[in-house]
Computed example of a mutant assay.
Amino acid sequence: MTTTIREIIAIPMGDAAGIGPEITVKSLAKEEIYTMCKPLVVGDAGIVQKAIDVTGVQLSVNVVSTPLDGKYQFGTIDIIDLANVDMDAFEPGQVSAQNGRASFEFIKKSVELAMNGEVKALATTPINKESLKAGKVQYIGHTEMLEDLAQSKDPLTMFQVKGMRIFFLTRHLSVADAIKQMTKERVYDYLVRCDKALARLGVESRKFAVAGLNPHAGEGGLFGMEEVEEIKPGIELAVAAGIDAVGPVPADSVFYQALNGRYDAVLSLYHDQGHIAAKMTDFHRTISITNGLPFLRTSVDHGTAFDIAWKNIASEVSMYECIKLAAEYAPKFTRQSL
């Protein structure tokens, strides 16, 4: 995949003690990235140089003050250096207050650049909840940070893997609580918002399938009434509003059908329903997109992996795909709010 417009993509470095720095430099050691976008690391130059030394990639570091100062040439990593990691106190693979604070500062700076229009998208690396807490950072994860920093409400999560797109009606709730959220009003609202989100990404064909909750999507009420009373009426409301949507489609087939091109996106009803489908398709190439922000954000869908960090064994596949997907959508992405 080659894009003709190379947009600047900010890459906040993530938790320094985790695999973020390694997978970033390994990804930027691939020439194809530079044919698609202009990658700009936001992080600590000392950590990036250490990651280069550990991985053995042939890259040089170019510290810049603004995105406009970057070379964006293969063989060079352009970085806005916040110089906020004390290398003498740095411990790989360990929970750390300084790394928790630093990871937040990388994200905050990246968001500022995006909000000012200096970069077109963010491709984020893993952060660690325990380190954030140790560093007295008030957020528990990326989504909460981005929502607050960008003053956005209830951003939508979308997974993409091998062309299959999955949205989530509910996320971090127990299954019992998630079912309570499966109202016709919410199904309708999310289908409308998901359609607008894909439009902002430049997706012209937008046919949605809504996954069923119960076996065989309830079989007309034989195996549960949620589909009959809430889910299908919500879909009908969306269709009446002009959304191209069908369902509920049994969950044991809808993702396979989407993977093979029958649908442009699936609305998963709860967290694990969509996560399992995506990660069983290709764990390393499942990339998360946060929709509903003023800017584009893609992310790997794995953690800091402290147990293997700084041993040069972490795979960069997810980060590479994360940057590529940001580069693919960035030229078409529109900044207007949902």
Rank of each mutant, 00 (worst) to 15 (best):
Y320L: 13
N128F: 07
V42E: 01
L122H: 10
I5S: 13
C194E: 12
E22V: 08
E204K: 15
R165N: 13
L269H: 04
I231R: 07
E321Y: 08
L68H: 12
Y329P: 01
L191F: 02
F104A: 04
S288R: 05
I276W: 00
P250M: 02
R297Y: 07
S288N: 15
A241L: 04
S299C: 10
G274N: 08
N128A: 06
V249D: 03
G202W: 03
P294V: 02
T334G: 08
Q98K: 02
I79N: 12
A245V: 08
K279T: 13
V228K: 12
A17V: 01
K109S: 09
K26M: 08
A199W: 00
A330M: 08
A265Y: 08
P215E: 04
H275N: 11
H302R: 03
L146M: 10
V210K: 08
G20C: 07
L173A: 03
V42C: 05
V85D: 11
K324F: 04
E226G: 02
G292F: 06
K324W: 01
E91H: 14
L82A: 09
A209L: 02
P155L: 03
R206W: 03
P248G: 02
E328W: 05
A238D: 04
V175N: 08
N84D: 12
S253I: 14
I127V: 10
D282V: 01
P331L: 02
